[in-house]
Design a protein around this nucleic acid. Structure first.
Lengths: 217, 217
DNA sequence: GTCTATAACTTGATAGAC
DNA sequence: GTCTATCAAGTTATAGAC
């Protein structure tokens, strides 16, 4: 028998991912989890804290993996400067490993993260604390991999990249590329290859400054 | 004095864009619009129909512009085959013209569209009818511009492109590039250039098929 | 067309028995 | 720890006076 706390977290993760935070009521979560309606307040105090708990359960390990992988790539690189492709790989591989592992939320957690990325005002403060250092670290590595991009250009393209990634995680359109695993298991290599190819091409695209072009006309 | 119906639509557009559909109550909309709480049911019958009305008010004109622009580009091309850049331009320019025009919702409507793209289950049937022919038409043009991509690869990259675009419209990070207009007005050319450069590079990126690579190893 | 009043229901959250 | 019962507030939506 699974722990009550985990059953609530599982049901909340699934329903928040499927219908969004605001549209999901605690009663629906309790019903799906098969526990009493009062349990959630006993274990989590409020709906917002429940969302935090859902996220924290998965995010910490993935973020740790991301930082570790990036550090390893930098050690392996001769001058400590890794390519865009490697930075993207270090960020995405832990994510895709989660999607491949039902015990770590599988594709459901990815879908939730993709959704919350759009309802950014929902992301609680604690989660920001959990993600900010990772994002800063990766932004720094990206800047070193792309020295020709100004900080503003880099930030703009990073937003585009995050939006693109969040979209395919949200609508699960990445899953069609991941059927090739042995015994029907999740093989994330084709997805990784496609994402990295697309995103790195975007990061490397020529900078068009139409304003300057207009001035020199 | 503005029409009551329009005041409701304006307030709904703004609040749906800012807080999302589920998290916004009709009472809050009526309060912001400064009209009676019963008006919305008199004019729109229900919350869902109100959302439909908010979208239909803007989408029809923009979609018409998109199709017209694409048709013009195809006529101008020698063999009727336009580049990816031109297809993207035909899709994005009407959008950015809306963002530049406060009378057509300005950046607020773009933000709303970006949000709804994430809560895709909310997009009502009528809106799908309104958008589907446009999307099919553009998919067809994209396929002709990128004959080397399989339909599955093209669809995947189109999702990535939509996600990237929706993200920058949602968080308004595109607005910083649009301050150059005369008298502080919105100049969408720099935004268009940056979006097209990024997205077309993604569409043209090499296709990596790791599965095949593994087989030939 | 605009308003008040209210129906009918759902929401997050709590108190207190067991 | 788990349950029932319930609260107080907020929700969409409607009926009917003016």
């Amino acid at each position: 028998m699974i722990d009550t706390k985990d059953r609530i977290l599982d049901a909340a993760e699934r329903l928040f991912a499927e219908n969004g935070y605001s549209a999901t009521s605690l009663r629906r979560i309790m019903n799906d989890a098969g526990v009493n309606v009062a349990s959630v307040h006993y274990y989590f105090h409020s709906k917002e804290v429940l969302l935090e708990a859902v996220l924290l359960r998965r995010a910490e390990a993935a973020n740790h993996e991301r930082l570790e992988m990036l550090a390893r790539f930098e050690q392996e690189a001769p001058d400590g400067r890794v390519t865009v492709e490697k930075v993207l790989e270090a960020f995405l591989v832990p994510t895709l490993r989660m999607a491949a592992d039902p015990a770590r939320g599988g594709h459901v957690f990815l879908r939730l993260m993709g959704r919350l990325h759009a309802e950014s005002d929902l992301l609680p403060g604690i989660i920001l604390v959990q993600f900010r250092p990772v994002l800063l670290r990766f932004a720094e590595a990206l800047a070193r991999a792309l020295p020709d991009l100004s900080p503003a250009e880099l930030y703009f393209r990073a937003r585009l990249a995050m939006g693109a990634t969040a979209q395919v995680f949200r609508d699960s359109s990445y899953r069609k590329w991941a059927q090739g695993g042995a015994g029907g298991s999740f093989d994330w290599q084709p997805v990784l290859g496609r994402l990295v190819s697309y995103l790195s091409a975007g990061f490397r695209a020529p900078v068009v400054d139409l304003v300057r072009e207009q001035e020199t006309r």
